[in-house]
Design a protein around this nucleic acid. Sequence first.
RNA 1: CGGGGUGUGGCUCAGGUGGUAGAGUGCUUGCUUCGGGAGCAAGAGGCCGUGGGUUCGAGUCCCGCCACUCCGACCA
Length: 564
Amino acid sequence: MRVSNLFFATQREVPADAEIPSHKLMLRAGLIRKVSSGIYAYMPMGFKVYKNVEKIIREEMDRAGAQELIMPALLPAETYQASGRWERFGPEMFRLNDRKSAQFCLGPTHEEPFTEAVRDTFRSYKNLPVTLYQIQHKYRDEVRPRFGVIRSREFVMKDAYSFDIDEEGLDKSYQKMYDAYRRIFDRLGLDYTIVDADTGAMGGSGSQEFMVKSPIGEDAICFCDACGYAANEEKATCREGEPDGSDMLAIEKIHTPDAKTIEELVAFMGTTPDKFVKTILYNIDGRIVAAMVRGDRDINETKLGNIYEAMEMDLASFDDVERITGAKVGFAGPVGLKEKIDIVMDTEVAGMRNFIVGACETDHHFKNVNPGRDFNADIVKDIKNVKEGDLCPKCGQKIGMARGVEVGHIFKLGTKYSDALNCVYLDKEGKEHSMVMGCYGIGVSRTIAAIIEQYNDEDGIKWPAVAAPYKVIVIPTKTNDEQIMELSEKLYNAYIDNGFETLIDDRNERPGVKFKDADLLGIPLRVTVGRRAAEGIVELKFRMDGTTAEATYEEALEAAGKIR
RNA sequence: CGGGGUGUGGCUCAGGUGGUAGAGUGCUUGCUUCGGGAGCAAGAGGCCGUGGGUUCGAGUCCCGCCACUCCGACCA
C-alpha cells in the first residue's frame, strides 16, 4: 500500500477525551474513530489489526475443533424470555421495537440463540460433543463506557459454546478452549495471568479469566508468586490466623457519640480497626440480611450474594436499617436486633474474641462481644475480600494484588441454559438428558487495546508483528531522487512478493514527518532508503526494541522474516 | 442513580463587564528547505450543541433540552 493513497490521518494533539495510553494512541494513530459514547468505527489501519487478531483467534478455535457460524445481532425478545434474561439484563440491554411493536434487542451475549440452534438441530448423544463459535458485535448499554475500546457499548467478541453429554465431556471441551486461549494470547504476545473466577449463584462448576495485568485494569486480581495461585478478587480466598483463645470478658455498652464509621470509632477509642466487627445490612432480593466482617475488611458482595443465590442485592435502605436495628445508620450490630434476620458471619470473625460492634442503639457500641455467647450467627462463611498482605490459601505465602484487563473468560455453565430452553439429547437407552454446556468469550476489541497497553512508548505503538497492520514500511527520504525511489520501489515490491504486508511512504514529505508517523503507527520494521541508496545500502529500524542497522538489499529483505 | 466539568474551523483551545469570532495545529498554493512532526508568504475553512427568553443587539446574560466527559454510588 502506498501511504499517499492510504485513508488515514495521524494526529499530533492528544484527543481531549482519552485518558489511557491505548485509547490515546488508537485515536492519534487514526485506528478508530468515536461515533458516539462507547461506539467506535475502525478505520482501515485499525481494521487491519482487528482482522489480524480475529485471524489468530479463528485459527486457534478451528484447530480446537470449534465450528464458526454467525448469529443475528438483532434478536427477538422471546429468545431471552425463556431463560429469564430478558428481565434480568435490565437496562444494560439495548431494546427496540419493530413496526408491529414486537420487542427486540441487540444481543448482549448469545447463550440463548446457540442453545436453541443446537436444541433444534441435534437430538442424539451421537451428535455430541459440539463446540460452536462466532466473532460478532455485542451490545451492552454500559452505565459508564470508558477507556475507548476497553469498555464500550458496541464491541467485538468471539463467543463460543460447547455442548456435551455430561460433566466429563464438558471438562474436555473446556480444556480444549483453555488450551486454545493460551495459544491465542501467547501468539499475540500478551503477558497474561489466568485467574479463577466466580461462577455466580446460578451454578456452573468452574470459571477462569484471562487477565492482562495493567494499572488501568478494571478488575482486581490476587496472585501468589510462590505457588501460582491466582484468582480474581470476587473469588479469591486467604488463609486466616489462628482463633483467638483469650477468655471472654464481660460485655459492656459504651457511649460513642457520633462515631458511626470505623475510622471515627478508631479515633474515638484509640484502638485499631481489626478490633471491630462491622455489621452491614443488605437487601438481597427483598430479604434483609446482616453481614459481619472484621473492621479492617470489606465485604465481598459476590460471596455474600452466592449464599442466597441473589438475583439482585444492594445495601439495605436507611429506613430498613433504622427499623431493624432501632438505631440510626452506623450503629448496627448482631446483638439486640429488633427483628429476626439472618446473620452471616465471616469465618474470620468466628475466631475473634472480645470485639466491638454497634449496639443497635444510636451513639452506642458494645465491647467484649463474643459469638456464641452474645449472639448466634445463622451462617458462618467466607464473605470477605482478600487484601494486600493476606496469606495465600494454598501455600501461606504473601498474596500480591494487581489490576487486570479481562481479555478472555471461560466458563463451565452446566445445564442452566439447556434446562431453561429444553436443549436435550437422547442417550443410548433413549432417555432424555439436558446437554452440559460451556461458554467461552474473548473481547476482540479489548484485546487490541490490551496489546497497545502492553506495547507502547512515548512515540507510539509497538505492534507485535502478528497484530501489526503492516509489517514493513519503506521510507524513501526523498521522493525526487531517482536512485532512492528506484531502490525503494524495488524493495517494496520484493517485500510484497515475499508475503509481507508493506507500506511505502511515497508522500512528498520531509523524512521527519514519515519517521514520526511510522513510529506512531508502530510498524515493526522500518526501512529507510536515503543517503547510501547509491551503494544499495539502506537503514533498518526495529520498532519493538529500537535497534537500527545498515543493510544491503538482501539483508533488508531477510530482516522482514525476523520480526516478531 | 448522585454530583462536577465541557460543547466555538478537521484537531487542541482563546474569546473580563453583551456590539455579527480568533490562535496554534492540520489543509491548499508558491518560494526556500530536505534524516526526527521545517521557514516565510498567500489562501480555503465556523447557523459558536440545540430550543426558548431578556435586549436595539447574545459566543457572551437567564431558563429548558441534548450530547460528551470525569468523579462518586452509601462498607454502618
